[in-house]
């Protein structure tokens, strides 16, 4: 292929990519994903792994510290 073909193909790919990214941002806006972000930050917690509780420690230290590590927030 001549180099001009690469430019055309590359440009087409780049445009498609850009349009997809722009659409994703538009969708996020329309969908309300950019509102109430502070609440969104808390969606990673639930009853099994609640906010305010450390959920990982070295195995041997677990027993002595597990009671004190909860609810420090």
């Amino acid at each position: 292929m001549a180099w001009t073909h690469y430019i055309i193909v590359g440009f087409a790919f780049a445009s498609l990519f850009f349009v997809l990214a722009a659409f994703a941002l538009y969708w996020a806006y329309r969908n309300g994903q950019l509102n109430e972000l502070e609440d969104g930050a808390k969606t990673i917690f639930d009853d099994e792994e609640p906010m305010g509780q450390v959920t990982d420690q070295f195995p041997s230290k677990k027993d002595e510290t597990s009671s004190t590590k909860k609810n420090h927030e």
Binding site: G40, I44, M51, G52, D56
Partner: peptide
């Protein structure tokens, strides 16, 4: 962005900045 807030049990400091 998942593990730091998750393990510490504290939401990410500024979620807006992360976006």
């Amino acid at each position: 962005y998942y593990f730091i807030p998750k393990v510490l049990g504290r939401p990410i400091h500024s979620y807006y900045l992360s976006v």
